[in-house]
């Protein structure tokens, strides 16, 4: 028996929008501690790791560990039928090969649900590779407004990486003299680090911008970059991308 209720159903919609362009199919792993997903893109140079902790759900029942393979494109289509203020319920069981998404509006919740919609989606068998990602010390960790990071990636990608139309340099300095803490840019640097990444992937990661006001970028020369979007009270979406290196 699996039953999860998320009052802010829009969170799962945003999560799907942030990962569906990177990964087509993925296993959602449910345990008593929460919902996790780990999947690589088809070229195996980028990885997404999702955590939604059980405490973040209004109701969370997972009798035994379950893995559900879902097509993220189809799941996104179903979740798009939910209003942004809808409560989302996910139901599954051990015997059927489907998962049910139920959307209920919260207009007059104490009395009755104004609208109930449910969608049943077929599950699929996915041979998911799982990578062990060790905790690491990073040379530099940058915490900055997520919208600003998205803007920078978009601008750089539009100029292109061939040098045909010229070059672009963007310097971001630490800035903590801001009214709101989420507007700050904080750079923790243990050692200088210089790395090159495929902007196409970085731009895909920024689809997670609606999930969080801030983004954390962790860099070490020997490791894939980690681009982390914290989901308040619930967990995170983390993206990993391997660097481009000179032969």
């Amino acid at each position: 028996m699996l039953e999860l209720r998320l009052v802010q159903g829009s969170i799962l919609k945003k999560v799907l929008e942030s990962i569906k362009d990177l990964v087509n199919d993925a296993n959602f792993d449910f345990s008593s501690s929460g919902l996790t997903l780990q999947s690589m893109d088809s070229s195996h140079i980028a990885l997404v790791a999702l955590l939604l902790k059980s405490e973040g759900f209004e109701h969370y029942r997972c009798d035994r560990n379950t893995s559900m393979g879902m097509n993220l494109g189809n799941m996104s289509k179903m979740l798009k039928c939910a209003g942004n203020d809808d409560i989302l319920t996910i139901k599954g069981d051990d015997v059927s090969d489907t998962v049910t998404f139920m959307f209920t509006s919260d207009l007059v919740r104490e009395i009755f649900f104004y609208k109930i919609a449910d969608f049943e989606m077929k599950l699929m068998d996915i041979d998911n590779e799982h990578l062990g990602i060790p905790e690491a010390e990073y040379h530099a960790i940058v915490k900055m407004p997520s919208a600003e990071f998205a803007r920078i990636c978009k601008v750089l990608a539009s100029i292109g990486d061939t040098g045909d139309i010229g070059t672009a340099n963007i310097v971001l300095r630490q800035n903590t003299t801001v009214d709101k803490p989420e507007d700050a840019t904080v750079i923790e640097m243990n050692e200088p680090v210089s790395m090159t990444f495929a902007l196409r992937y970085m731009n895909t990661f920024t689809k997670a911008t609606p999930l969080s006001n801030t983004v954390t970028i962790s860099l070490s020369p020997d490791l894939p970059v980690v681009v982390k979007y914290k989901i308040a009270e619930m967990g995170y979406v983390r993206f990993y991308l391997t660097p481009k290196m000179e032969e």
Binding site: M40, S43, H44, I45, A46, L47, E129, H130, L131, G132, I133, P134, T196, A198, D222, L223, P224, Y240, T242, P243, K244, M245, E246, E247
Partner: peptide, 14 residues
């Protein structure tokens, strides 16, 4: 030439 390692190179395949 510029090359890009796959993730297995950095992380343990469980």
């Amino acid at each position: 030439p510029i090359h890009q390692q796959v993730l297995y190179y950095y992380f343990l395949d469980l």
